[in-house]
Amino acid sequence: MISRSPGNSLEPMGEETVIVGHSFRSSMALLRLAASAPEPLPRGMVLLATPFWGQEDWQAKYALPADFTLPPGLPVFLHHCRDDGTVPFEHLDSYERLLPDAVIRRHETGGHQFEERMDAVAGDMAALGS
């Protein structure tokens, strides 16, 4: 099951939930996770073009705590395209440093909307569903 709940809520959800977020929503899913990890944890997260707030001209009010870590056992996949004209590709490097347990997927092309890259995203979603 893929959950898309209104607002920034991660509740209610069950252990079969896969959180999929793009851009601002993906950063809000991480921020909500930092505030309080839900029980049970979702099956995993697949996040696309996630802004790293507090960097460069990106507002710090949405920044994750510096000591944020992923809950043990929560698989997280972070995808970003090098030619993204909205969220700088370097934001992915910041997430790689902050979240060393996350799986990082770098795509050369696809832009902010992941044109012709959704097969890779779908593959990660499918892996979480099995």
Rank of each mutant, 00 (worst) to 15 (best):
P42L: 00
W53I: 06
S36K: 15
D57A: 11
A29H: 13
G54I: 12
R43W: 00
A37T: 08
L30E: 04
E56L: 07
E39H: 12
T50M: 02
M45R: 04
P42I: 07
A60D: 13
A60H: 06
A60N: 05
S36M: 10
P51E: 09
S36R: 14
R43T: 07
Y62L: 13
P42M: 01
P51F: 09
P38K: 01
P51Q: 08
L48Q: 00
E56N: 10
M28W: 03
E56T: 06
L30P: 11
A60Q: 11
R32Q: 15
P40Y: 05
Y62M: 10
A35S: 14
S36N: 12
L48V: 07
M45W: 01
Y62H: 14
W58Y: 14
P42Q: 01
G54S: 11
W53F: 15
R43G: 01
A60W: 00
A34L: 11
R43F: 01
V46Y: 00
A29C: 08
V46D: 01
L33D: 02
A37H: 06
L30A: 07
A35P: 05
V46Q: 01
A60C: 05
E56K: 10
L33C: 05
E39C: 10
P42A: 03
A49K: 02
F52E: 00
T50A: 03
W53Q: 11
G54C: 11
P38D: 01
Y62A: 08
A35Y: 06
L48C: 05
A49F: 02
G44C: 00
G54V: 12
F52R: 03
P40G: 09
S36V: 08
G44W: 00
L41I: 09
Q59D: 14
A49G: 14
E39N: 11
K61I: 14
G54A: 10
G44M: 03
A37C: 07
S36T: 10
G54M: 10
Q55N: 12
D57Q: 11
W53S: 15
A34P: 12
M45L: 07
L31C: 00
A49D: 03
L47C: 01
F52M: 08
L31H: 09
K61V: 14
L41S: 02
F52I: 08
R32E: 15
Q55R: 13
P40M: 08
F52Q: 02
A37S: 14
L41D: 02
A34Y: 10
R32S: 15
A35K: 15
P51D: 09
R32W: 04
A60S: 15
G54W: 05
W53K: 08
R43V: 05
V46I: 04
S36L: 12
A29W: 06
V46M: 01
L48D: 00
A34D: 10
P40E: 05
A49L: 03
F52A: 12
A35R: 15
Q59I: 05
A35W: 06
P51N: 09
Q59H: 07
P51I: 13
A37I: 08
W58N: 09
R43C: 02
E39S: 15
A35N: 11
A34F: 09
L41G: 03
T50S: 04
L31M: 09
M45G: 01
E56D: 14
L33N: 05
L30K: 07
A34K: 13
A34H: 10
T50Y: 01
T50E: 02
D57G: 05
